[in-house]
């Protein structure tokens, strides 16, 4: 039972991180229908930038965190402006392949600079965040991740629900032509959603880096894990991303714990295929309302 409980907790924590990573991915897809294969690399870039800020520039942690978020925001903006905007209206494969190309570019860049070895942040999280209760043991990072994640969720929820810019962004996702006819700056919305998504990705990258250490290959593998998560949750549902993340996280830890650790890497993708065959719009995705 204890084993089960510990697995459960681990699963939830990992799943929450998956969900967090998937959030940015969903945001990009929701507003501009671009499937971002470079998401894992965005995570990694965030993590490495934070590392550079903390260890090389030696900024205080909070400042470094903010600087990373700002840098990611700008990076997202640049990606949209210079790489994706020229492709508006081009066939799907070009858009997909462009993000794949960007992924290799970033990955190669990071490997050149930081190498493929595991790096770690200096320890800076206060110990009181750790929770120890009976058999349950949650390390401080997970608590911090949970707090940051929930904070961002609420923040974005409010942003999309109540701010005009958030409503404009949703309107573009909903009906681009109508949004255009009302003078919504569609390209600005695309750029903004990339910027926000990169910001969220950078943040999740930092959190993942704190937990597992920073390694280009591992972080970009998370970028692929995002696919089962978002397909499960529905490609266009931010809440769904979190829930999909939790489900995948639990599945992974349970298969890892009870069946075989190596199987846990492939189970999400088996689930992915099944979900695609049975319910392609995911658990929470919006099925196309077709009104003729």
């Amino acid at each position: 039972m204890n084993f089960f409980l510990q697995l459960f907790i681990n699963g939830i924590s990992i799943g929450f991180l998956y969900g967090l990573s998937a959030m940015g991915f969903v945001m990009i897809f929701k507003s501009s229908s671009v499937l971002n294969f470079a998401h894992g690399e965005l995570l990694a870039l965030g993590a490495f930038f934070f590392l550079a800020m903390v260890t090389w520039v030696k900024l205080p942690v909070v400042l470094a965190f903010l600087a990373t978020l700002a840098a990611c925001f700008i990076l997202g903006f640049i990606i949209e402006r210079f790489f994706l905007r020229p492709l508006i209206g081009e066939p799907l494969i070009y858009v997909i392949m462009l993000t794949v190309g960007l992924a290799s570019m970033f990955k190669g860049f990071m490997l050149l600079f930081w190498g493929g070895n595991l790096q770690t942040y200096p320890d800076f999280l206060p110990a009181f965040l750790g929770i120890e209760w009976h058999v349950i043991n949650i390390p401080p990072v997970y608590t911090a991740a949970l707090i940051i994640g929930i904070m961002f969720l609420i923040l974005f929820g409010l942003f999309f629900k109540y701010s005009s810019q958030g409503i404009f962004m949703r309107s573009v996702a909903d009906n681009q032509k109508a949004a255009l006819s009302l003078g919504v700056h569609v390209q600005r919305v695309f750029a903004l959603s990339w910027a926000i998504a990169a910001l969220v990705a950078g943040m999740s990258g930092i959190v993942l880096g704190i937990i597992n250490g920073i390694n280009v290959h591992d972080l970009s593998a998370i970028g692929l894990k995002v696919f089962p998560v978002v397909i499960l949750g529905g490609l266009d549902s931010i809440g769904g991303a979190i829930i999909g993340g939790l489900i995948i996280g639990l599945l992974e830890t349970f298969t890892g714990g009870y069946i075989s650790p190596s199987l846990s890497d492939v189970v999400p993708y088996v689930i992915l295929v099944i979900i695609l065959m049975v319910k392609p719009y995911g658990l929470f995705g919006l099925e196309e309302i077709e009104r003729v």
Binding site: I167, D174, S181
Partner: peptide
């Protein structure tokens, strides 16, 4: 649109997943 010309598209294209009021708010984009 910022000069004051707004077109109402043929065939009623609302933002289906926005509430009515949010639909109206999008009109203030300019």
């Amino acid at each position: 649109t910022r000069k004051g010309i707004i077109q109402v598209l043929e065939g009623r294209q609302p933002f289906k997943y926005l509430t009515v009021e949010e639909n109206l708010i999008v009109g203030t984009a300019i």
